[in-house]
Amino acid sequence: MTDQVYLGFTYTELEQKNAVWTAREISQQPRLWQMLSETLAARKNQLDSWLAPILAEPVLRIIMTGAGTSAYIGEALQPHLQKHMSLTPGQRIEAVSTTDILSNPDMYLQSAVPTLLVSYGRSGNSPESKAAVQLANQLVDKCWHLVVSCNGEGALAKACEGNDRYQLLLMPEQAHDQSFAMTSSFTCMMLSTLQLFAPNEAQFERMQALALGILAEQVDGIANLATLACERLVFLGAGPLKAIAREAALKVLELTAGQLPSFYETPLGFRHGPKSLINTATQLVLLPSADPYTSRYDSDLRLELERDGQVLHLGAPLPLSQIQGLEDAWLGFPYILYCQIMGFFKALQHGVGPDNPCPTGEVNRVVQGVTLYPFTQD
């Protein structure tokens, strides 16, 4: 490992910057995606057999849940899965964060509606994740659990042992990020869900090739963009890419220890107030859709911003010529890789060690300080 180069730095250089794990975990993602796809292919029959009777429930509700970055997995995939899964008119897919379920369980859980709770967790030990599972079992008459986690020793994974209403999707060991910020854990858990519910080998191969191209050809360019002395960084994406923009904004905020305010919106939503944050020190990253219809709105906003000439820099991870034909849920993988790299270099620009950007402990790798209260219904 010590002779490896990640994101243009040697191991020794990364050690000095407190950045070894973050650089390694960002760089390893295309390789882990391949490993994960092979593992899922080997388990396909077993997983399909477990899911079949659940998906046959005529009014099934699938809730994809997690906290923070883990919650954005469901947000990124829900529109795509709703479109591509063979659902009956009474079935639906929703993305609801565990933090929302915990604070208002009776608003999000319905006792008479059969529910598959898909729980995402890097460690599987966050208090909200464990509580959301318990609340679902308490409040929903027929409830199943698909646990998607990177830690086989976590509480969520352990809950699956010996219970046929639970199923564990365990990510490759290397996806259990040791860095503070979730990178490979996010994309692996997102990919596993796509490959399970709406697999598409052609889309997978194209997105993986784009990601490899970013790592091989764009790292220096992203590093140069990160040196721009911006005061605000904005990420814009529509449809499934809105959640990718949200995750990108969180990555920058986390990795810079809050020193660089970062924001997200859709290109159309940006005009409705958020555009007022623009000044000549604002850097903006547009995540353009590959959908011909959606991309018209992306292009309109880009032209408007270029015409206004008020932003420090306006760019996109990939040109439209490279992304044509790729569905936006799959396009999210190379896009978030690009944004993770930008967040990494922004952290270094601000003198922050990305492996542990908050060493004083106000924010932790696994959330602490949450008091769980018993929920009783009137």
Results as ranks from 00 to 15, higher is better:
293 Y>S: 11
85 M>E: 10
371 T>F: 13
172 P>V: 09
206 R>D: 09
326 L>K: 01
295 S>A: 13
178 Q>H: 10
224 N>G: 06
302 R>M: 13
160 C>K: 08
356 N>H: 10
259 Q>P: 04
123 S>K: 10
145 H>R: 00
305 L>R: 11
298 D>K: 05
68 G>L: 05
260 L>V: 13
57 E>T: 11
304 E>I: 10
254 E>L: 05
61 R>A: 05
85 M>L: 15
141 D>Q: 14
82 Q>D: 11
181 A>K: 01
137 N>A: 12
211 A>N: 02
112 A>Y: 11
325 G>M: 07
74 G>Q: 07
165 R>F: 00
86 S>F: 13
214 I>W: 00
89 P>D: 15
232 R>F: 13
133 V>D: 04
237 G>F: 00
281 A>V: 08
243 A>E: 00
294 T>P: 04
138 Q>M: 01
145 H>K: 01
364 N>L: 15
128 E>M: 03
239 G>Q: 01
69 T>S: 15
355 D>G: 09
76 A>V: 05
349 Q>I: 07
227 T>W: 11
171 M>W: 14
185 S>H: 02
110 Q>L: 06
149 S>H: 03
372 L>A: 09
75 E>R: 08
335 Y>T: 02
329 A>S: 02
341 I>V: 05
264 Y>G: 03
186 F>E: 02
303 L>Q: 14
146 L>P: 00
141 D>Y: 01
206 R>L: 12
30 P>C: 04
74 G>E: 09
137 N>F: 03
332 G>H: 02
119 S>W: 01
35 M>E: 15
161 E>Y: 13
55 L>N: 09
366 V>A: 12
72 Y>D: 04
22 T>W: 02
71 A>G: 13
193 T>I: 10
65 T>V: 04
263 F>G: 07
317 P>R: 00
354 P>M: 12
